[in-house]
Design a protein around this nucleic acid. Sequence first.
RNA 1: GGGCGCUUAGCUCAGUUGGGAGAGCAUCGCCCUUACAAGGCGAGGGUCACUGGUUCAAGUCCAGUAGCGCCCA
Length: 944
Amino acid sequence: MEKAYNPSDIEQKWYQKWESSDYFVASGEGNPYCILIPPPNVTGSLHMGHAFQHTIMDTLTRYHRMKGDNTLWQVGSDHAGIATQMVVERNLSAEGQTRQDLGREAFIDKVWEWKEHSGGTITRQMRRLGDSVDWNREAFTMDDTCSNAVKEVFVQLFKEDIIYRGKRLVNWDPKFHTAISDLEVENIEEKGSLWHFRYPLANGETTADGKSYIVVATTRPETMLGDTAVAVHPEDERYQSLVGKTITLPLVGREIPIVADEYVDKEFGTGCVKITPAHDFNDYEVGKRHNAPLVNIFNDNAAIRNTAEAFDYKGKAITDINLMIPDGYAGLDRFDARKKIIDDFDSLGLLDSIKDHTLQTPRGDRSGAVIEPYLTDQWYVAVESLAKPAIEAVESGEIKFVPENWSKTYFQWMHNLQDWCISRQLWWGHRIPAWYDEDGNVYVGRDDEEVRKDNNLDSSVSLRQDEDVLDTWFSSALWPFATMGWPEKTKELETFVPSSVLVTGFDIIFFWVARMIMMTKKFIGKVPFKEVYITGLIRDEHGQKMSKSKGNVLDPIDLIDGIDVDSLVSKRTTGLMNPKDAKKIEKRTRKEFGEGIESYGTDALRFTFCALASTSRDINFDLGRVEGNRNFCNKIWNAARYVLMNTEGQDCGQNGGDLQLSLADRWIWSRLQSTIEDFEKHLTTYRFDLVSQALFSFIKNEYCDWYLELSKPVLNDANSTAEQVRGTRHTLVNVLETVLRIAHPLMPFITEEIWQRIAPLAGIKDNTIMLQSFPKFDEKRFDEAAADDLEWVKNVVVGVRNIRGEMNISPAKSVPLIIHNGSAEDERRLNENKTFLMTLAKLESINWKQKGDELPVSATALIGNMDLLIPMAGLIDVAAEKARVNKEIDRLSKDKERFAAKLANPNFADRAPEAVVAKEKEKLAETEATLEKLKQQITQLESL
RNA sequence: GGGCGCUUAGCUCAGUUGGGAGAGCAUCGCCCUUACAAGGCGAGGGUCACUGGUUCAAGUCCAGUAGCGCCCA
């Protein structure tokens, strides 16, 4: 073996071997265990959050595979409609082209090209991460199977009137010219103004205080062109007399009613609200109650139309209404129109006042454009009937959220569902399977042919398909069964629905998790998964969200392979939305990664992700942890080297022969059992931080720090018997072999590499660790007596090391040890473990002294009643030893007082459980005895 | 406005039913000891945000305050 761990030498070769040997394919035997990958968007590459979740999914997958389950990690990717279209359009625009230049078909070809490219990047990354997905079953939300499922679902839901078409307000993205869902809108607090406009009362009416106008406040002046009412609160005394009267809308001249509605907040602004039902969601609701027409003043670009258009709430056009657009407005962008409206009001003397105001501005999460509530024809899913079973599935515990608390978030959303707008005015996506004849009648079917057959339409009727595509999440919602071949009745559908656990972030509980539950319940009648493990969100080390614009993103591959600082800077500063950020990003990057990033390897990265996966919802990614874990890998590597050096070509008992186990052997076997127990306990509760901690502390603090050291005296002692040496070699090899299997799900590569060399020494002839069985807890190996005895050995060794450390005695220097005042039990332990102590504490001699024996002046450590003494002659500085002992006296004196005070309190003595009181008394007695001894030490030191 | 969460060592975080405050990294000291200097051995470091309550006993349970954050309207 190489002297140091070098991940790049070992990782890729094993992945290729595993993949080409079909080890990732479900065995077909045992209990089904299935994880559905949250399909990554084909927009680019995997980020740290993906790598994190993939680590968790792979760890679970590998564990269950080793447990003998019929294990499938279903892989695939998502076409991500708007996001992908945007990327491809941006690429086109770099060549000076638009999608319209290409036309729909050619554009879609371009997107497919992009998908091949991006999809390749993602699958390469997954292979680097060690993801043991079944590549033979790779799915894509736009492939034929998924497309069939989409059509099937659409047609069925349409037939049941769950899918319908309607003219409604949607969130319109004027940049991308498409509707988007509520969830794709981010409300951002921005500074704006509140403009107060005077609306003249019609027909000579006046207000209570004699004014000929009322004042409305608005944050969006341009929409006034579409006002069709003014609302006041029914109990607002200022305006009560005006309800039922009208005002004349300035600039337009439309006469519109003053209505009373509870929606109005009397305290806000003037208490009068302009109602623009076609351009505001709240106004829509108010307008509907008062039958105020919907007057649309915008076109698709959110610029002013030439003439307005009006509809009623059933979508029927209204013509007997003043739809005038004043001169000079047609074609103006909404923000230019705003300025002009304000100017015009001002010059008419109708601008009452302007106040500063912060407001929530809706922006598209992809485009960043201000989203416009906009009246259009769209397709909807009526979610109510789908939601009910989906809510029940979680209420009944059929689906469990982990951590449990996230079910609240789920319920909160599910109980406040709006119908889901599923049509998108994009080219990339599943084309809506609906056709129109020349009269505008709509027919829904799987294809043109079916539509004609079902509706008796012969070829003389010309049909055109709906231009729009479906929301991406519509197809993602079918992922649990579409990937299993539905609507065909496949074996996979039978076996892997429901899947076992969904591993995902809380940010898509609404987008995706809820919708999968609804659709899977509806079409399969089962839940899509039994558990939903919600992971935290990976942030940078200061808790900032990682984003391209902040310039703090890390590519998981760069942590695996390493990257120099120049490359990192150029990666972070190319393709920025705002190129001005580049300087700042470069400066910060150079400051933080002056030396670039070292290569840490996949296993160290994966182990780090697991170690960070506590219940916290934010995970600050600390590069120091990766480095520490890379060092941990090196530790494992070198431990294996040591084992091999001492066992290869030697008799390790793999072919039989008597084994005599030392105390250390029995102890490490026992500790190994506890490790298996802890590992499984924490894994089944998704506490990957505790899982990794259990592994770390066993391997490092027990196997390496103690056991390997304890094996040396046995192997090196010329007096050891063949059985003893064989026993220790056997233990070295087999404990290592076992712990490699425990660690494999987290650290697949290093464990495979080492296992290949270790397994033969354990008598195992097989091709891969991947398919070995996961270690089982073995009661017979559990050995409390060994634990107690070894604890004693450790205490003695640590006691001596303590003195050495604090007295700065060179580790190279052997020291004599005197043990005094020990019990018979101590004496037995000493006699049985002399060689361990001699080696580990680097002793030149051990002398057992009885009470009353003459003792030299010494540095002392106490273990219970037993004293460890290292004679001072020539070794130890008296003043330093005094200082050391005094420090200990200080510490213990404080403890003593605390215990004494507690016991002196009658409330405690009388009311606390007896065991607790007894324990406290014991602690006090022990502390007092120790103090007494330490004080004697001081006296003795002073007498010199 | 409604909901959820966080505050523990310099940093990043554990702390399961209330009963002697922990890990990793960083810091300091000694050491190139034959698996490992990507290392070993040892050490220092905390008013568990604050206030009050319950309790013999609170990092842990309850109420409130402050600060930070997320989601929804």
